[in-house]
Design a protein around this nucleic acid. Structure first.
Length: 201
DNA sequence: AGTGCGATTGACT
DNA sequence: GTCAATCGCACTA
């Protein structure tokens, strides 16, 4: 398949505010250049975990676990949860300030075969629909924790020439603390958004 | 040192 | 739709 022409996002293009960044990232592309080839997917769902959010990892201060979320905006914060899943976050504020956005779902663009192998033969729609699934499909794990997504490395963010559809807003998924804040953003009607139909409309 | 629980998934009804 | 598996981290002592 013909490779898609992609342009790296520069840090200066990223909105400075966490919530604005979460909304901005819908429609952008995550790229991972692996030894096996290029994996890429269009972001269709994000959540914001802004400064002072009781549901955010950084709320109780900096630790080894959340250190990368204190890097200046545009760095990867990868962590492991539920004994099974890695999560990909993008740090969102100035150096020393803990906040970030969670990337919850991708629409696969390149590397379908490799993604399918990584995902144990899952169907196209389920390759990267969900935060744990997308890290598996994109071959993202703790070894990428702290990498600069706006640098020259193999894992990076790209702009898309595709027009982004209408963006919907809802409460975030799976939280107990600060569960009422409407900080989840998604492309409305996109089948690659996670959750039941009601959460994709 | 022990306990509780989570920014989920996959299997099953 | 429901529900258990799984393990690193934060918290208590």
């Amino acid at each position: 398949m013909k490779p898609i022409r992609l342009r790296r996002l520069r840090r200066a293009e990223l909105p400075v505010d966490t919530v604005e960044l979460a909304r901005y990232m819908v429609g952008k592309i995550v790229v991972h250049d692996t030894g096996e080839g290029r994996l890429s997917g269009r972001i269709v769902e994000t959540e914001a975990y802004p400064i002072g959010d009781a549901a955010g990892h950084a709320f109780r201060g900096e630790t080894a676990f959340n250190r990368s979320s204190f890097l200046k905006r545009g760095h990867a914060h990868v962590y492991f949860t539920y004994g099974s899943s890695f999560m990909l976050n993008v740090s969102s504020e100035a150096a020393g300030v803990g906040a970030g956005i969670l990337v919850r779902a991708l629409e696969p663009l390149e590397g379908f075969d490799q993604m399918q192998r990584l995902r144990g033969g899952a169907g196209l729609r389920d390759l990267a629909r969900g935060p744990g699934r997308l890290t598996q499909a994109m071959q993202i794990n703790l070894s990428q924790d702290g990498v600069d997504l706006c640098g020259a490395g193999p894992l990076w963010l790209a702009a898309s020439r595709l027009k982004t559809g209408a963006i919907g807003t809802s409460v975030r998924i799976g939280l107990t603390r600060n569960a009422d804040a409407k900080l989840r953003f998604y492309e409305r009607g996109n089948p690659y958004v996670s959750g039941p139909k009601k959460l994709r409309e």
